[in-house]
Every structure is written in structure tokens, then in C-alpha cells.
Design a protein around this nucleic acid. Structure first.
Lengths: 204, 204
DNA sequence: GTCTATACTTTGATAGAC
DNA sequence: GTCTATCAAAGTATAGAC
């Protein structure tokens, strides 16, 4: 880890503030002035730490948020007694966070991903890399549970799609109904995949 | 239908242009100047037809795009020999459109929904109404096939979440892999629900 | 109703003093 | 490295001639 990124650091505060603003207002909706205001940083230091301006800051925030979210989900799975419980915990936990933050904090990169997909190639690539890391992170876990390569990847993609799609519905409707329904479907999909695993290698 | 909305109409052209721009660049990323330019309309007529400015235009576009997309999906299902085929056709068709438009045209309101969820209440409400209409439209079809009320709604929500989530992944990665995986999971979920339907009332 | 010109604000970005 | 002042451009919105 970069030792220059101590908490309380100016650069660090800028990164954290940007991550939170991106989650709520998206990339285009977040102004640099609002970022430095929230980070209690002078305007000039933003361009000192990120000479590439908003885009460079955006790329760094995407990668950072993506890595943190992966860690978070990994921790939830590690704490769960089995994979299916882990899936439930993820969706339930997301619903809890969403409610607690007045339906503001869902996925840290989803909004940005959609905004930049057709307009900003470096940012688009950053979001793609994050999603790929999530997919492979989940797939690895499913393979360890004995699920075949191809199924593991398809299953991972489907779970992430269910989560991201539910985030859209929940934030729009200001309810957690969608996360509940999607969580059920996700758990069922994992159970179905585990049912096809040879019993001796199964780790439910 | 409002007879004033003939094709070629100024108002109509503004609505169409805005819908397309929202899909690619989102709400914040779309400027009014760009809208009137794409619609071949003078700037003043935008505020003549939409006195409420960008927000009023946005609400109308959301409702319009939502209704059109519902019609489109309904037509796909009606043309399919059975429900499971209909699900496959939807995901396959979406993938085809995405590829044909260089990964630009996915869901007409998803990006906007995420952008405005925490910032613009009238727009947020419009997106919520559209999603609710989609959910109930799908649920109605599943109930007709004999699936119970509660399951029909949960299934509908999950399918829409899978589709919206896959859109994010596909646009970010510029591949259609996610729509393929999500489509498989969606079809499997419908099949599982149909398996629990009493045989005499089943309409597969 | 159509269209042009313009007002006002905010945006991302830069220069340069300290 | 920190911080202030300012720039040019783009944003939404309005006024008013035709």
C-alpha cells in the first residue's frame, strides 16, 4: 500500500470525498469545486495531486472503490457459514446500507460506468477492469466449491447483474423490495449450480 | 394518443432526440443546446413546448421511453412460442441492439434513474413509475401462465434486475457476455417457477 | 408559435503568489 | 506543496422581435 495515503492526507481526503459524491451524483453530476469543498482541500491541490484533472481523479477513484467493494464482499462471504448464506448476506447487507443512507449508497461505480460508457474511454476501461475483477473474484470462489469453470463464470456474472440491477430499482423506487427478490433468485441460482456438483467434491 | 404528436413535429423531434441522448450520455451529460441541435429545432421552441425546462422535458421523455420499451418487450413476448423462449428472445434481442449500436443503446432510463435518484425528486418518481409498470406488465404475464402472485412479482423484478445489471456490464466491457449469462439465469428462473405450477393450469 | 440574442451561473482548468 | 484569483467555455433560462 502506498505509504503516502495516510488517512487525513489531502490526497486521501479528496479520493474519499470523490468516491462518495460519485455514488450519489455520478461523474458528470459531481463538480470539482464540490469535491474540494467536501474534502476540505484547497482547489489547487486537486490539480497538484491529479495533474490529469477530473479524468485522472475519476480513474483512480474507480479503481480504489472497486477494490474496496471487492474486499467488503469477500469479507462477507468469508464470514458466512456457506456460499448460499454468503449470497443472502450480501443482498441483505446491501439493502441495509441502502436504507440507512436514504437510498444513496449503492454501488460505487455503477452510475459512473453508465455515464462514461459512450463518452470517456479511459474511464470506461477502468469500470470494465473493476467489473472483471469482481466477476473473477466470485468465480474463483464458486470453482473452489466444485462448480465448473464455465458455470462459475456465468453464475458470477448473473449474481453481479442481479445486484446491480436491483440497485437501480431500489434507488428509483426507494424500497428494498428488489434486493429481496433478486437475492432470492441469486441464492436459488447458486443452489442449482451446487446441485450439479459431484457430491464428494461439494462444499456447500 | 395526442394528435399534436405527429412525426416530424417540433415537439416530437425534441422528445425523440432527448430520449436518444439520455440513453447515451445520461441526464446531466445531455445539454439543452445539444438537444435542440439534434432535433433541428430552435432553442426557444424547447421552452415553448416545455415551460418547466429540462426537468419537465426529462419527465416526459422518461414516461414516453418507458412506455415504448414496455410495448417493445411485450411484442417480443407475444411473438414467442412460449414464455421461456420469450425471455431468451428479449436478452438475445437486447444483445443484438447493443452490438449494432456500438454498445450505446441499452435501457432508455437506467442511466437517468441512477443519476437523479438522490437529486431530483420529480424525475426519480418518473423512473420509479416506469419500473413499476414494467414489473407489473411482466408479472401479469407470469400470473396468466399460472404462477402465483407473489412468485410472479419476485420473478419479474429479478428478470428486470438481470437485464438492467447486464446492460451495465455489457456497456462497460463492450461485450455481450453478460447478457448471455443473465439470459440463461433468467430463463432458468422462469422454468423453475413454471415447474411449481399445477400441471393442469400450466401454459409453458 | 417560431426563432435569435443574451443574461446569468457553473463548469473544468490555469497562473502565480506564498 | 498550499492556496487564491481568474479564465474561457458550457450550462440553463429568459426576453423580446418577428
Amino acid at each position: 500500500m502506498d505509504p503516502n495515503l495516510k488517512p487525513g492526507n489531502t490526497k486521501m481526503r479528496i479520493l474519499d470525498a470523490t468516491a462518495e459524491l460519485f455514488m450519489r451524483y455520478g461523474y458528470t453530476g459531481t463538480g470539482l469545486k464540490q469535491i474540494v469543498a467536501d474534502a476540505n482541500a484547497p482547489f489547487g491541490s486537486l490539480y497538484h495531486h491529479f495533474p490529469g484533472g477530473k479524468q485522472e481523479l475519476g480513474v483512480e477513484v474507480i479503481h480504489r472503490s472497486g477494490a474496496m467493494y471487492l474486499e467488503l464482499v469477500t469479507a462477507v462471504f468469508d464470514a458466512a457459514p456457506d456460499i448460499v448464506s454468503g449470497v443472502h448476506d450480501c443482498f441483505d447487507g446491501a439493502a441495509e446500507v441502502l436504507r440507512a443512507t436514504d437510498y444513496a449508497d449503492a454501488c460505487p461505480i455503477e452510475t459512473v460506468a453508465l455515464e462514461v460508457a459512450s463518452t470517456n474511454e479511459p474511464l470506461r476501461q477502468a469500470t470494465a477492469e473493476v467489473f472483471e475483477s469482481w466477476i473473477e473474484g466470485a468465480a474463483e470462489r464458486f470453482r473452489t466449491a466444485g462448480i465448473g469453470d464455465r458455470t462459475a463464470r456465468e453464475l458470477s456474472i448473473s449474481l453481479i447483474a442481479l445486484l446491480e440491477g436491483a440497485f437501480v430499482l431500489c434507488r428509483a423506487t426507494r424500497t428494498t423490495e428488489a434486493l429481496g427478490a433478486a437475492g432470492k433468485t441469486a441464492a436459488a441460482a447458486v443452489e442449482a449450480a451446487l446441485r450439479h456438483v459431484a457430491p464428494e467434491s461439494a462444499q456447500p
